[in-house]
């Protein structure tokens, strides 16, 4: 066997780079904005204030929530937001 000058190791990763996504295009109209509560304590306090400020400026607000902060938002929640709203604000809390 010839002496190796390099050492070969096997890639321990899944060999997939997370997909890089460009920012979505800015919506021309911000009429309806979703506010998502991820269900952390006092997230509602922050979102209540945001809702007040948005309504003052003439926006419609749709309040929605994840079932639990520990898990990704279910597809239905994401789809509802995408269908009904122009933009979304998520309160991460903590």
């Amino acid at each position: 066997m010839t002496a190796l000058e390099t050492l070969e190791i096997l890639d321990p990763t899944a060999e997939v780079d997370p997909e890089g996504r460009p920012l979505a295009g800015r919506p021309p109209d911000l009429r309806t904005i979703a506010l998502v509560d991820i269900r952390k304590p006092r997230g509602d306090v922050f979102l209540d204030e945001l809702e007040r400020l948005l309504r003052e400026r003439g926006h419609e607000v749709q309040r929605t929530a994840k079932p639990t902060f520990t898990k990704p938002a279910p597809a239905d929640v994401r789809k509802e937001i995408a269908t009904r709203c122009d933009a979304v604000i998520e309160a991460l809390a903590d």
């Binding site: 000058e5 390099t6 050492l7 070969e8 190791i9 096997l10 890639d11 321990p12 060999e15």
Partner: peptide
């Protein structure tokens, strides 16, 4: 089937 990564002769693995 994992991708092989070559470490150079002068690299400490």
């Amino acid at each position: 089937r994992a991708r092989a990564l070559e470490l150079g002769a002068l690299e400490d693995p």
